[in-house]
């Protein structure tokens, strides 16, 4: 195996004979993304609508009721939650809450949904990013259940992709989610709902000082 490594690296070096040995990688000018303006929450909500991800805006005080109402609407009787999900979020829920303690895929498949927070959200693309940090749990949690209710604190919404990349650490496993699972494989028409959660709902929680 090491022989192949040396062979490939030697071939790469031979192929780059035209590159001066002392050439350093040139810096690249990258255009910035969309500027952070006032309407980020509106933009984020608009983009989510486009994906049919059903954004609902709530004040911080109304979040527990909003979570309960969303689950009620969905008819979700048993939902899984990350072990560190703030208890307050689900304090009004009638649904049975299953805390994740390493459930296997079959067990995750048996619940009706999952409630999480997120690390960052991107307004320009309607994306939520999970990094396994607070209130998010491991990746399987937001993958196997068919319904994902994601709570997005408005303060976590950034304008565009570059802002999100700057805030995230690749040391953690990351999942960027833009709407429910979808496919364009049949005649290049978009159909929502394949293997990942077929329904994504987002609660955007306005917090003081974000102008939301």
């Amino acid at each position: 195996m090491n022989r192949s490594r040396e062979r490939i690296l030697a071939r790469v070096r031979a192929a780059l004979a035209d590159v001066p040995r002392d050439e350093e990688p040139a810096p690249v000018a990258v255009p910035p993304g969309r500027a952070a303006t006032d309407g980020l929450v509106d933009l984020f909500a608009d983009r989510l609508e486009h994906y049919r991800a059903r954004p609902v805006r709530v004040g911080a005080a109304d979040l527990p009721e909003a979570v309960a109402a969303a689950l009620r609407r969905r008819g979700a009787g048993r939902v899984v939650v990350p072990a560190d999900l703030p208890e307050e979020w689900t304090s009004r829920c009638e649904a049975e809450l299953v805390a994740d303690d390493g459930l296997d895929p079959a067990a995750l498949d048996a619940v009706d949904g999952v409630v999480t927070g997120c690390a960052v959200a991107v307004a320009a693309t309607g994306t939520i990013v999970l990094d396994g940090g607070a209130a998010q749990g491991r990746r399987a949690l937001t993958l196997v259940p068919d319904y994902h209710l994601c709570v997005v604190d408005a303060a976590r919404i950034v304008a565009d992709v570059p802002d999100a990349v700057a805030r995230l650490s690749p040391v953690r496993p990351l999942t960027w989610i833009s709407g429910p699972s979808a496919t364009s494989d049949i005649e290049l028409n978009r159909v929502e709902g394949v293997h990942g959660p077929r329904t994504l709902e987002v609660l955007i929680v306005s917090s003081p000082g974000t102008g939301a």
């Binding site: 693309t125 690749p170 833009s178």
Partner: peptide
């Protein structure tokens, strides 16, 4: 604007 899912991983977690 963005595909539904992008996964990024670094080694094992």
């Amino acid at each position: 604007r963005m595909n539904p899912y992008t996964s990024m991983w670094t080694g094992v977690a």
